[in-house]
């Protein structure tokens, strides 16, 4: 064995391995300034604007206006709808990609990312093209009195499309890492498909699934572009919270607009807290994967 060089004094080691003092502090300050200017100040401003008339006015702005009230209710309907659809689609897609080898598997994997790369407005237009009166299914739907565009089903569809990748994206690597051995073992012990899924697969992927749901939920609540196109923007009928924020803003009702925006922000912050909590757990679960 070659002889080791003598250990240098601690201070010299630090000098050799770390960047100079001014580099570290400049970068830290720069990052803090960007976050402060682009994130903290606007968020604080939303709450300041919302509460500028006092708590009573804030409450009145949120729940006194029937159209605003309806937009809150609508968002609380559309988001769970889109979530339910994406949990089902996400599980199915992740299962297919992680467990089966079929022609077009790679294509399907990249198709899942499509909603991330397509502009939500384009996605909305797509739905108009399919379900609109000039679209492929429009006349058929109208003949059977089924309303999709400018109604809640359309909003759910558009939201689900835009947020589709979150659950699937989160589940595919988790399921691939876990492998199918435990599932095969369950089948060989006599479990049927549902028992295998509920007792083996679900407990193994639960944190990944929850994480995907949280992200999906956050994105779904804030969805604007696709929903804007398919909703028709009918106050009290198809306005979700983000649309309502924009409409109030256009009507120069700044306190009202800020009030709804602050509620959306609160929901987002709540999501963030749950996400941080989950992130602390998910890695420890994944460490046991191998």
């Amino acid at each position: 064995m070659p002889e080791r060089p003598p250990v240098p004094p601690a201070r010299r080691v630090r000098h050799a391995q770390q960047d100079p003092f001014w580099v570290r502090w400049t970068l830290t300050l720069l990052a803090a300034a960007v976050v402060g200017l682009l994130v903290v100040v606007p968020v604080v401003h939303v709450f300041v604007g919302a509460l500028s008339g006092g708590l009573g006015a804030y409450w009145q702005n949120l729940f006194g206006d029937p159209d605003t009230r309806h937009s809150i209710l609508l968002t609380l309907t559309v988001v769970p709808g889109a979530l339910a659809a994406n949990i089902a689609f996400g599980l199915a897609a992740a299962w297919a990609i992680a467990r089966f080898d079929f022609p077009g598997r790679t294509l399907l994997t990249s198709m899942i990312d499509l909603p991330f790369s397509v502009s939500p407005v384009v996605a909305g237009l797509m739905f108009v093209l399919i379900f609109g009166l000039q679209g492929y299914l429009g006349p058929f739907l109208q003949a059977h009195d089924v309303k999709i565009l400018f109604a809640t089903p359309g909003l759910i569809l558009a939201t689900a499309f835009v947020t589709f990748p979150f659950v699937a994206r989160e589940l595919i690597p988790v399921m691939q890492a876990i492998g199918d051995e435990e599932e095969t073992a369950a089948v060989s012990l006599g479990a049927d498909g549902w028992q295998m899924f509920r007792r083996i697969t679900l407990p193994n992927i639960k944190w990944g699934l929850l994480y995907g749901i949280i992200l999906c939920n956050a994105r779904a609540m804030g969805e604007f572009g696709a929903v804007y196109v398919v909703s028709g923007h009918i106050a009290g009928q198809t306005d979700t919270m983000p649309l309502r924020v924009e409409k109030l803003f256009q009507e120069y009702n700044l306190p009202g607009s800020f009030a709804v925006a602050s509620l959306l922000t609160l929901l987002a912050v709540l999501t963030l807290v749950v996400k941080v909590f989950l992130e602390a757990r998910v890695p420890s679960e994944r460490r046991n994967v191998h």
């Binding site: 435990e182 095969t184 369950a186 089948v187 060989s188 012990l189 006599g190 479990a191 007792r199 046991n288």
Partner: peptide, 28 residues
């Protein structure tokens, strides 16, 4: 497979990682 009455021991054991030893054995 599940109707054949076969006990299968997998190469890498394939134990259910979220279950105790007792629950693993009780699964079937």
């Amino acid at each position: 497979a599940r109707d054949r009455g076969v006990g299968f021991v997998f190469q890498h054991y394939a134990l259910f990682r979220h279950m105790t030893v007792f629950e693993n054995v009780a699964f079937g």
